[in-house]
């Protein structure tokens, strides 16, 4: 029940991080620098859950697919050398994320600053790094 679990995660985070209506998550402005501290990681988690996890997450795919579409493609490409799920990767710096978010890849379209700000990308990089450390050894 990926989608419902996703909703539950968002609810938990919403208690910690008030929604900023009309803006990408936590971004005061597109060019605002990322703040320091734990809230950055939490914000990064929320941005990831809302924008990336539906295709790049660790959840099951639809209708019998074992993994989500982008996770499946990356797992196939990396042949076990790296996890297919982005949240398990240890090499995704903010600059690498920014490259793919802004330029897309294959069937993945580009994301605009009105959707995911640069500060959001920085926050995602912080969360992914923390999460990857926690999940070290997972292959999926």
């Amino acid at each position: 029940m990926k989608a419902i679990a996703y909703g539950a995660t968002a609810l938990a985070l919403a208690i910690i991080i008030p929604a900023v209506s009309g803006q990408p998550w936590g971004a005061k402005a597109a060019s605002a620098p990322a703040a320091k501290g734990p809230s950055v990681a939490q914000r990064g988690h929320m941005v990831f859950e809302r924008n990336c996890a539906p295709c790049h997450g660790t959840g099951p795919g639809i209708d019998g697919s074992p993994t989500l579409p982008a996770t499946a493609i990356l797992a196939q490409r990396y042949e076990g050398q790296m996890p297919g799920a982005l949240e398990l990767r240890t090499d995704l710096t903010a600059d690498v994320l920014r490259l793919f978010v802004r330029q897309g890849a294959g069937g993945m379209p580009m994301f605009r600053k009105a959707e995911i700000s640069d500060a959001d990308i920085d926050a995602m990089a912080v969360w992914i790094a923390q999460n990857a450390k926690k999940n070290a050894g997972r292959k999926r």
Partner: peptide
Amino acid sequence: RRNGALGIPSLGIWKIV
């Protein structure tokens, strides 16, 4: 497609792209 039939949004369909 079960998610769609039950009104649950997903990006699982991107597997056809």
